[in-house]
Design a protein around this nucleic acid. Structure first.
Length: 556
RNA sequence: GCGCGCGUAGCUCAGUGGAUAGAGCGUUGGCCUCCGGAGCCAAAGGUCGCAGGUUCGAAUCCUGCCGCGCGUGCCA
């Protein structure tokens, strides 16, 4: 990892601030001031220190300013250091510092900001994990775009991430699915269909039935009306596999990748669900009552105990999740992250109880809850029902607006905010979509560099810094310097929308720079600096877009 | 009832203790002899749900209330 330009400046200020206050380990907030006329950077560190030091913040700020002016490296980096307001320190960067910073960014290329995390972790990231009873729809799509982006960002800053999909290929929903496939199969072979109550009416079930018929030939034609147990078992298992293939195809198309697909069915088959329940019973964390086996989750802060084995004999979803999460805990490394839909948030306490009962630190489980995506069409909320087959599929959304726009849209807002996606707007706006704004910034950089190449202009590392900088150059350079902190912040908060917001800001800075400054054909120092600025911007935009799974075309 | 999340510009949303709260879309008015106008510049638009509290400083933290969403299954 390249040392980020702002990091060393920040460290120098922290050292001097500590000296002034007579303490150690001072954290320095260093960022753009609220108003541009206050300079390039500002820090409230003097005010932060004032309380503990019991001194006037302005007095501390003045002393700190003195030291920064006297210290050689900060004196060279800073053109002006001023105390303002209640004790802010406003900094103005010297052109040479700005030039060096941009050179550093450009030299690092698309890897600028990589590996910035202080303590790398091994993280098991689970997301989407829908049961294979139907295709991926808009509700899953947000979790897919979000989870994949978080994975990319965590990896980028230096964590070792394993991405996992938990296949819910067992249970009542799968049985309904198997029966639904059998009913469609019966239709295909001209037999009486037995569609179960609450079965899956979607068209795709016909496709699964057709594929099965092709695999099986006519061997099952007489066993589907009504289906026998063996038929249902096969149709559920094989139908689920075929459905999962469809899901994987959609995810791949959506540029979402996994390291592992973990089947719930195998947990049951290998007896690990039973073993998990037994383990809880043995440790006293589960007990029998009313003919059922209960998990004593109240011992871990839940409001009531939860059933693991029904009085009728079957295990619950939670029982499988006990086995699954104990398995994950054993192999996760340092941490596991579950990305779950909003309708599962009541589940968090139970999952933490699983870990605690298993002897693991429940804080190693992090549950990220996706709020819902609502759809509006023609100004009205679109009613969607999986069972009625009126759901909007991810494949359809991609056909409408493309992968780039869909992914950009879905991670543009914080994951804990419910938002409405207006389908009409999403369709009509495909030309006005913010994704084009950012992609255009990248294409524009490429265009400038193509022009430079055509004119025989190359990068010029030996050129000195320009005498003066245009405000748009300063703004763009500073924005680039902030990238490592932005991406580190996005990783820490699991917040890809911060990357998106940054890219929009960066693009705005680039476009403004473009309109005020020419690159090719300027005086040597100016042209050299602007070439670096253009290269650095191109690479950071490309990198940021890649972190949210969006392409960066050279031409549009 | 209880638990979690959310109330910020007309709309969609950023902003988890710092200065006069921001962006996009929409509205209004300017800018193409140019490395791409899928762009730029400017204007208008706010009791940050309400009321207290914590402190040098609160959209941000605490308490209460109001409103919206989700959850509160021997469903998954």
């Amino acid at each position: 990892m390249t040392t980020a330009p702002l990091t060393s400046l920040q460290a120098a200020i922290a050292a001097e601030a500590a000296a002034v206050a007579g303490t150690t380990g001072v954290h320095v907030e260093l960022g753009p001031p609220a108003r541009p006329e206050h300079g390039d950077l500002a820090t409230p560190v003097a005010m932060t220190l004032a309380r503990a030091a019991k001194r006037n913040p302005r007095e501390i700020a003045e002393a700190l300013a003195e030291r920064l002016r006297a210290r050689p490296d900060t004196a060279a980096a800073l053109e002006a250091v001023e105390v303002a307001g209640p004790g802010f320190l406003n900094l103005r960067l010297a052109p040479a510092w700005v030039t060096d910073a941009v050179r550093t960014v450009a030299a690092a290329g698309p890897g600028f900001g990589r590996g910035g995390v202080a303590r790398p972790e091994r993280i098991l990231l689970e997301f989407v994990s829908t049961n294979p009873t139907g295709p991926i729809h808009i509700g899953h799509a947000r979790g897919a775009a979000y989870g994949d982006s978080v994975g990319r960002i965590l990896s980028f800053v230096g964590h070792a991430v394993t991405r996992e999909y938990y296949i819910n290929d067992h249970g009542a929903q799968m049985e309904l699915f198997a029966a639904s496939v059998a009913a469609r199969y019966a239709e295909l072979v001209g037999a009486e269909p037995h569609m179960p109550e609450g079965g899956y009416p979607g068209e795709y079930v016909i496709g699964i039935a057709r594929a099965l018929r092709e695999e099986l030939g006519d061997a099952y034609d007489g066993r589907v009306s009504p289906p026998d147990a063996g038929t249902l078992e096969l149709f559920g298992r094989r139908g689920g596999e075929l459905m999962l293939d469809v899901i994987r195809g959609t995810l791949e198309r959506f540029r979402v990748s996994y390291d592992e697909f973990f089947s719930e069915r195998t947990l049951h088959q290998t007896g690990r669900v039973e073993a998990g329940v037994r383990r809880l019973v043995d440790s006293g964390d589960a007990y029998e009552a009313d003919g059922a086996v209960w998990f004593r989750t109240t011992a871990y802060g839940d409001e009531k105990d939860r059933v693991l084995v029904r009085s009728g004999g079957g295990t619950t979803y939670l029982a499988a999740d006990v086995a699954y999460h104990l398995d994950k805990a054993a192999r996760m490394g340092d941490r596991m992250i579950d990305v779950l839909g909003a309708d599962h948030h009541g589940y968090i306490g139970r999952l933490r109880a699983v870990l605690a009962a298993g002897g693991f630190d429940p804080d190693t489980l992090e549950v990220l809850i996706m709020q819902l995506v609502g759809l509006t069409e023609s100004g009205e909320a679109k009613r969607m029902s999986k069972r009625a087959g009126t759901i909007v599929l991810l494949d359809d959304l991609i056909d409408d607006i493309g992968v780039d726009a869909a992914r950009f849209f879905l991670v543009e807002r914080s994951h804990d905010t419910a938002f409405e996606l207006d389908l009409d707007l999403a369709r009509e706006q495909s030309q006005e979509n913010p994704v084009y704004y950012v992609q255009y910034a990248h294409a524009r950089c490429c265009s400038i560099l193509a022009k430079a190449a055509a004119e025989g202009v190359t990068r010029d590392p030996a050129a000195g810094p320009p005498q003066v900088l245009d405000p748009s150059e300063r703004a763009l350079a500073l924005r680039l310097a902030e990238w490592p902190r932005t991406v580190a912040d996005a990783a820490e908060r699991r917040a890809p929308h911060r990357v998106v917001a940054y890219l929009k800001d960066l693009s705005r800075d680039l476009h403004a720079f473009y309109h005020r400054c020419r690159v090719v054909g300027e005086a040597r120092e100016v042209q050299a600096f602007r070439m670096e600025l253009t290269v650095a911007t191109r690479d950071v935009v490309r990198c940021g877009l890649d972190l949210v799974g969006v392409t960066a075309p050279d031409r549009m």
